[in-house]
Design a protein around this nucleic acid. Structure first.
Lengths: 206, 206
DNA sequence: GTCTATAAGAGGATAGAC
DNA sequence: GTCTATCCTCTTATAGAC
């Protein structure tokens, strides 16, 4: 680890402040409705200064998404650090973290099918590396859980993986929260229930 | 029913063509990425002519969403027309129709949390009426299915309702389709399975 | 690297002739 | 009601002084 000059530290701190603001705005409004002017105003610097740190709006968002991916990877490692946890426990753990993050308004929205952000992210090595690493980690748990019988063997592992990823942008959380009569924890519990146990009633034996 | 002059028929036919184009473009790219120029070009008329039929881009999209809502209501009535169908069967029927429509690329995307389309739709009487009617229809089935025990009683009916509505914009379908190695029917079956039975393995008795 | 000022362009909407 | 041509606003991005 190289020692940093004071100036470098200030530089990094400012970039962190920028990325934090972008993360929040992405979670609030999504990529298309977030404007660079807005980011600059909230950080408290001029727009031109923003462009000295990040070359484009896409790069700005990519930096935020990379940080989110790093958080997710940390969570995945935290699941693996639990000694007695089974594969399904780990899958539920990372899913719950995703839902909690989203309901707290801290999950930047994933790129929609046709966003210009999508191609920028696909071209972004740091993001794609993180995504691959996370996919492999979850994929291993899924295969394990299916051989356990704790995840339905009729589903291809990729379908399970995508279903868990999709919880990051599940609109059901927002709908229930808009009602205003439930706590965040209660909402997360219900979505966890539908995700892993489905809408259908379980037979009495279950 | 008033008889229509030839000119009126042509007028309505053109509006139908416009709405059909908007529905397709909404399904393809969503509201924000769809441009009015594009709509005009695909319909084959000038943009100014479009604005003689619909006063704004929001009104254009609202007309498409209203038509979609009417299709959904027809489907709901079709479910009720099945003589031996139970409540859970009807819920599964409308959900399957939703998934099939989306995987076929014919489901206009629902308004995101902060789209300008959202407020326009909320202010649109025809859309809101349809939405209420559909909600009440599904709500009745949900209550019935919960008293049957065929839908999990631990879930509040609104959570079940939102979960079914959310299938209209479930990104899992798109992810699986992008892989290219599954048929649409297979994809729909898997998402139906996760929606109603969840990711978890069922006990052998199930 | 920060600022003010501005370019460059996309996209929603309209004017006015026919 | 349809067209061509235009307006106007918003937004990304950059120029150039300090």
């Amino acid at each position: 680890m190289t020692r940093l000059s004071f100036r470098q530290k200030v530089h990094l701190a400012r970039e962190d402040a920028i990325v934090a603001t972008v993360k929040r705005l992405l979670a609030e409004k999504g990529f298309d409705l977030m404007t660079v002017d807005e980011v600059a105003a909230e950080v408290g610097i001029a727009k031109a200064s923003l462009y000295k740190h990040f070359p484009s709006k896409e790069a700005l968002a990519a930096a935020a998404m990379v940080q989110m991916m790093e958080l997710a990877l940390q969570q995945a490692q935290a699941q693996d650090a639990q000694p007695g946890a089974s594969a399904i426990d780990k899958l539920k753990g990372i899913t719950r973290w995703t839902l909690q993050t989203q309901v707290a308004g801290e999950m930047p929205t994933l790129p929609a099918e046709n966003s210009s952000l999508r191609s920028a992210l696909i071209a972004h090595k740091g993001y794609m590396d993180g995504l691959m690493q996370l996919s492999e980690q979850l994929g291993a748990w899924i295969v394990q859980a299916q051989s356990d019988g704790t995840v339905n063997r009729a589903l291809p592992p990729e379908a399970v993986l995508y279903t868990i990823f999709a919880r990051a942008c599940d609109p059901v959380l927002g709908f229930l929260k808009a009602g205003g009569s439930h706590t965040d924890a209660q909402i997360v519990d219900w979505v966890m229930l539908t995700c892993f146990d489905g809408l259908a009633g379980r037979p009495a034996a279950g």
